[in-house]
Structure formats: C-alpha cells, structure tokens
Design a protein around this nucleic acid. Structure first.
Lengths: 350, 350
DNA sequence: TCACCGGATTAGAACGATCCAAATGTAACT
DNA sequence: AGTTACATTTGGATCGTTCTAATCCGGTGA
C-alpha cells in the first residue's frame, strides 16, 4: 500500500474567483484562454492568479475531461546508456507535445515488469512505451495492460504467441540488415572465414542479427561452419571468457561479427589475453555504437542505431496513435548505419 | 484470464457496485481492504473486480484525499550514464515505496528547467528531486516551485543568493575531498608538478574539486602554477582539444587531476595524438568512475561516487522529508572513494 | 415493549477542475 | 417600449474516488 502523503492546501479556482469577484467558470475560461472572456476581466483574473501563486491542477482537469497528459515509459534497464539516450529522446519529444513521462524500470524481471505496469496504469497514462524485459510474455503484458491504453513495443519482441486482438505498435531496429552490412563489410575487406560471436539464441534481436550474418555469407557464396557460432551472455565478461572458443574448431576464423558492442569489447580483452591484436591480427564488428565503441583500442567498427532519435521516434509514434486510436497497427523498423573504424582490418593473409 | 473489458468506457467503482448489488462505498472499502467489510461480501466484490477488469484510478483518489503518489525527477542530462544510473536508483526506491517517478530533462538549459518544473508541478508531485542545469538560479527555481512542495537539490548548488526561507534539502558529492584524495595519491606516487585539467570555473562542483586539489598541493608544500589550471567544457571532445595547453607553460606537469572521467578520457585521446602514452609517460585521474573508466587504455584511476546508491539515497531523503515536512533541512554530503587503476603511474623521472 | 448495542452498509457531500444550458447586460433595431 | 442580437458570465452537474454521519438489522437486557 502506497504511503499517504498530505500536501498543504493549494490555491484553487475558487480562491481566485473569490479573490476578484467572478465565478469559477470564468477563471477556468481565462486559464484556457478562451476568446469568450472580456479583455478587462481577463487582465484582472490573470493578475489575481499571479498574486495568489496559482498552480493548475491537471489531475482534476483530466478527471473531469476524461483525458490524460502522461505517457508511461517502461524500460528493462535504464542504467544502460543506450536506453538512457532513448529515454532522453522520448522525454524531449513528449515534453514538447505537453506530455509528461511516467518512468518505470523493470531490471529485466518480468515479475517487476508486471508490477511496474500495474502501478503506472493506476495513474492513467494515455499510452505506454515498453521495452520488455527478457522472457516477458505477451499474454502477461496483455493481462495487466488490457486493450484500453495503446502500447508501443520497442526494441524487443514479446515471448509467447501474441493474442490476435493485441495489435500493438512496434518500433524495432533493423537487426538483420545491420548484421548483414557488417558481414558484407568484412567480406569486402577480404575475409572468408567469419564467425558470429556472442548473444543467446532465445533473444529475438540475436536471432535476427545472426540471420543477417548468415544471409550475407550465403549471398557471397561463403560457408558458415557450426563451430563459428559461439553463444555467450551479452556481457563483456562472459564474452572475454569465450574468446578461445573461436579457435577451437578445425578452421579458425579471421574475423567475427559480434552480437553487440559489449560483447565485442569483451572479445577484444579476450584476444589481447591470447596475445592477439584485434584490429591487426583479427577483425571484428560490434552493434549499437555505444560511447565506448569509438574510444577503445582499436576503435570499433559497429552499427549506429541513434538511440536518441529512436526515442523521439517512439514518442512520435505514440502521439500519432493517440490521434488515431483506430488506425491499423504500425510496425516500424528503424534503419541502422554502419560506422567503419579500425577494428575491421583486412585479414593478415590478404 | 484476460480481461473482458469492453472498449470505450472505463470501469469504475459504480460499475462494480452495480454488478454485485452493493454500494460504491463498500467497494471502495474492499479496495483498501478495510476490516469493516464482511468476509462474504468482500469475496463477492473481489470476484466482480476481476470479472470486469477494474483498474484503480489513483488520480481520482488523490484528488479526493488531497494526497500525491508521485515524485518529480528533474535532471540536467539523462544521457549521461552517471545520471542514468542515478535515475535508476531513484526509481527503484520510489517504486518500492509505492511512488511513481515523473521524469523531466532540462538539457542544461535553465529556461527549459523552468518549463519542465512548471509542467511537472501541474501534475502535483509530492516532492521534487532536482539536479539543476548549469547557471540555474535559486531565485528562479523558487519562483516556479514555491514553498509548498519539498525539493531536494542533488549534485549541484544553485546560483544566486538563496532566499533565506528556501531551506531545501541537499545531497552533494564530496567533491573537494575526492579531488584531494586524487591529488594526494599522485603526490604519493612521486609527482611534484600536477595540473588541474578541465571544467569551467563557474560550476560549483568544478570549483570544489579544484579547491581540493589546491588544498592537497599546498598541504604537501607544493606550488601550483596558474598555467596548470586549464579550463575546457566537460566533454571528451573539448578536453582532447585542450591537451596541448598542458605543455604550453614554462614548467610542464607530469600528471593531471581531471575534472571528471569524460575530460580524462578526452585528455587520453589528446595525449595519444601527441605521441604520449598516458599511464606511462603521463599520469592522470578522473572523477565519477563511469563504466568506461575501467575499460579504457589505460584504465582510469578515478573517484567512485556510486550513482545508483546516490539515487536510492536521494529517494530516501525525499520520502523522509514527506514524513516530516517540518523537520530542519538536511544537508548531506556523500562520500567518494578513490579507485586506483593504471592511469596514475609514477613519473618517468622518478 | 423498547432502548441499546455492535457489525455491516450506505447516501450524499466533498476534492478541483470542465461542460452545458441558461441568465445577464448592453446596444441596436423595429 | 419592445424585441432582437450579441457578448459575457454563471450556477449546477459531473468526472471517480473517499469521508462523514447516518442507517439498518438481529440480538440483548430491562
């Protein structure tokens, strides 16, 4: 049960009305600067508003008008710079449209996601932007969110079969195309033996990126060995750990397409420990273009997803949905851009 | 069981009451599980709540009870990992207490800060956590926030004389002590010519850190040359740009205490471009311990401020203030911890 | 019979805004 | 003077909840 926090008595429309001898309704008209009200009284009322330090009670107005001026933003991990940038973009755009952002973090826990969504819904947001926790199920999200308030899925798909009537909007990254670009870039540099490194196969984004890698390889007429697919947790540490697995197979790769930047940076560490110089002896690419990507040694070739712009886009999509609640659901795939840096060197043998 | 809510009107207490033949008041009592209500009717009502897929309207309740269950979090820069972690900590603790976070970003603009604060206040937060924009003035903040809703200042002081009746709570970092620790560490390693690099003098945190540096130098009986104080914007780029200024004076420093990690990482780049190897030819320290600090080359000696814990602490302080609105204002200074890594090497000449 | 009790329930007035229909005041026209 | 037109203003109901002060009811004791 949430605690009960008394707040001091506020100045209301009645106080203003009494203060300058008009009715509450007139003051309300002034606040929404209606053309109905006489210039003279408007001035008088406005002065009184200032004098008493009135602050508008939007909750009361929203109750009466059955509207809402808030949007819930539910993120799996705000501490991740990618999502932080995204959140900044969302808030920026929402604020410009007069909306306020209700923040909620789930810490990758579907259970907390349920709780957070439930709690935020009680505040009656007009819409929801959700980047689901890993293993979050469509069915559970639908059960708590219902069909009343529009939801925009960002970044990840939900597990489980999507009930056919839950036609949520989606904003996803072009994972497959991005990985394909990275792979084609390595091929163009002369690599023939290219691994796909990191991530878990039960993550939708990882599957998509892997698919892009396979697509590029096969299009180029190159083979993909099963032992060139190394799974590990999408963290630096686990990636560093799994680096040796790259060279355990019969045919050693000369390059690797990594699931994301974190994994790529971990692989850099792991290679260094083996005495290899990534960017010279071994080529690799990342995904996300996090701030550290440009600064490591070597600077990382990666795919920029422009998280702030994605945030702005997500906010736009939700606002648009509010305008047209009945329009068909919108599936958006945001483009990604290959950023070539020094980590994607040509093979030594070339 | 997915909700069977018809699209259109929201389910209210009246719907539930009508649905199971009791009064609205009784349903309300059930919701707040009051001991007054009969076990049997409670069961009936609870079933009806589930059946109709009722969601609590906290805004209406808050209006009636003149309470609030939200806290505004206003940050100068959410894209900065430091503040993102902080926000995650705040949200985590607030959520656990049944509160919801209203997010607002100001992008270091005092004008937007005014607008954001004004907008958030209309939603009636019970309290505010504010990390002010640069050059934000106490007078302006007071003008828009007023004295009704408690404010916690985080991280930065406000410019201008603080009106005596605005006794806001504060949570600051121990900037001066931190910079002193870093400087003393470099001195202990054998450095005698130490610069203070980056930041602007009109930022309170920069002044404090510089003061700590001066304090340590003078305590150790060392001189500080004026040209060892190099100002630049607290960004990587500008820092890299200003690196040559370190060696423009008569006596070149062998080490630098940097304003923060971003500046330190920029300086690393700048030194590399001059053919110097930071961590071998030149020592430096940062401040903040952002994620990248541990991973650069060299790993950065820096001061850990534990932003997530600071967020939790900030939330606690606000919640505590809500319990005791009349208590004397609380000035908290959070300790910082020196993290020694490879960037703070001994001088070559030693 | 009646007053009284305690547990369970409820009608109706709030909270602070908005909406609607109706009222008011003023000037202009038959 | 009476009617109309127009520009302003306003009382009262309303949004979904909670609070207060009743009310209802079966059982007791006098």
């Amino acid at each position: 049960m949430p605690s009960q926090t008394p707040i001091g008595r506020k100045v209301t429309l009645n106080d203003i009305a009494a203060g300058c001898g008009v009715s509450r309704a007139t003051v309300s008209l002034v606040l929404r600067d209606s053309p109905l009200v006489n210039k003279l009284t408007r001035v008088r009322v406005e002065e009184e508003l200032r004098r008493q330090g009135y602050v508008y009670n939007r909750a009361a107005a929203n109750l009466r008008r059955r509207t809402s001026t808030s949007i819930a933003l539910v993120l799996n991990d705000l501490a991740n710079p990618f999502f932080a940038e995204f959140a900044a973009g969302v808030d920026e755009t929402l604020a410009a449209a007069g909306f306020v952002t209700l923040l909620g973090c789930t810490g990758e826990s579907p259970a907390r996601e349920q709780a957070v969504l439930g709690s935020l819904l009680e505040h009656g947001p007009a819409g929801i932007i959700l980047s689901p926790a890993e293993h979050s199920k469509a069915h559970d999200v639908l059960a708590v969110v219902g069909r009343r308030v529009p939801l925009l899925l960002f970044n990840r798909e939900l597990g489980g079969a999507l009930p056919e009537f839950a036609h949520w909007d989606q904003l996803m990254l072009d994972n497959q195309h991005g990985a394909r670009l990275a792979t084609e870039h390595l091929i163009a540099r002369g690599h023939r033996h290219i691994a796909f490194f990191g991530g878990h196969h039960d993550s939708s984004s990882c599957r998509q990126r892997h698919a892009g890698y396979v697509e590029a390889m096969h299009t180029a007429g190159l083979r993909t060995e099963p032992y060139w697919r190394i799974e590990c947790a999408p963290t630096r540490l686990d990636a560093a750990h799994h680096a040796p697995a790259l060279f355990a197979g019969a045919l050693a790769p000369t390059a690797a397409v990594c699931y994301n930047d974190a994994v790529a940076l971990g692989l850099v560490l792991g290679l260094n420990q083996r005495g290899l110089h990534p960017g010279r002896d071994f080529a690799l690419t990342g995904f996300d273009d996090i701030a550290e990507a440009a600064l490591g040694t070597p600077p990382l070739t990666t795919l920029s997803v422009a998280p702030r712009e994605r945030g702005q886009q997500a906010a736009q999509l939700v606002l648009q949905r509010l305008q047209q609640p009945q329009a068909a659901s919108h599936q958006t795939v945001a483009p990604v851009q290959l950023i070539v840096r020094e980590s994607s060197c040509p093979p030594l043998t070339a």
